[in-house]
């Protein structure tokens, strides 16, 4: 059974159709990259998968790990093992990062019938992860994303992913706004998450992240449809030739 199966997905926002029949299958153990020019529907796809209000699915189905995803609330999707890494992580002033991490982990554990994580184990695990992301412990006691640089916000998204160990990670432009050092750290984080039980979808504009995280499949999204799919060489072609050539070829 596929981990994620999207069939003929149509979605609109405020009456305007953005997604116009998307088909995509992601199996556990695979890394997929979805690329496309601005306005192609990449972020809309992420929001629809995340269950954000305001997006209306007018046609099609999404199955996630055996569940009808479209019947699930945002938090149910998270608890079932989907993690959405945000392009623009929002600030929550006054709420310590460590507190959100703990609440998120406990929400998941509660759904699994487990007790709350004990503080000692939790702190040990979090500190190791923080160090692995080349971050300082002080970061844990700052407000969630409050005053974080672009790079720090993205590292934080990966940190959450490493802690929550989702079945499917959906990373929306995680590479944007990163300098080369941060890009390496973030890529290493993603690579550590690769595994036989886990699917990863990288939504990106550029090829550069894919130099560090090699995808198994690359899809080109254009005007709300996947117009071409291939292996990682497709990403290289995009980089070398730009979108235009491929768009023409597909049409």
């Amino acid at each position: 059974m596929a981990l994620l199966e999207i069939k003929n997905l149509h979605a609109e926002i405020e009456g305007q159709e953005i997604l116009k029949g998307i088909n995509l299958t992601v199996n556990a153990g695979e890394v997929h990259a979805i690329m496309g020019p601005n306005g192609s529907g990449k972020s809309t796809l992420c929001h629809v998968l995340g269950g954000r209000d305001g997006y209306e699915v007018t046609k099609g189905t999404i199955t996630f790990d055996g569940h009808d995803l479209l019947e699930m609330e945002t938090e149910e999707r998270a608890i079932a093992g989907m993690l959405l890494g945000f392009q623009h992580p929002v600030e929550i002033p006054g709420v310590k990062n460590i507190y959100l991490l703990k609440e998120a982990l406990n929400a998941k554990r509660e759904a699994q019938g487990l007790d709350e994580v004990d503080t000692f184990t939790f702190m040990k695990q979090v500190r190791e992860l923080v160090a692995s992301m080349d971050m300082d412990d002080a970061f844990l006691h700052r407000g969630v994303n409050a005053g974080f640089s672009g790079g720090e916000k993205k590292r934080n998204e990966i940190l959450q992913m490493l802690l929550l160990e989702p079945k499917l990670a959906l990373l929306d432009e995680t590479d944007s706004g990163l300098d080369i050092d941060a890009l390496k750290v973030v890529s290493e984080g993603i690579n550590r998450m690769r595994g036989a039980e886990r699917g990863i979808i990288l939504v990106t504009h550029y090829q550069r992240l894919l130099n560090y995280v090699e995808p198994d499949f690359v899809h080109v999204l254009y005007k709300g449809k996947i117009i071409k799919s291939g292996d990682k060489s497709l990403a290289h072609r995009l980089e070398a030739e730009g979108y235009q050539e491929i768009l023409e070829e597909a049409s």
Binding site: G50, G51, R52, D53, G54, E73, T74, E75, R77, A78, I79, L83, L84, F86, P89, V90, I92, L100, E103, A104, A107, K108, A111, Q160, L164
Partner: peptide
């Protein structure tokens, strides 16, 4: 904000 609510819910927190 809707953004804050969506962000936190996507981490598994109820509304």
């Amino acid at each position: 904000s809707d953004d804050q609510m969506f962000y936190l819910r996507s981490r598994g927190l109820s509304e």
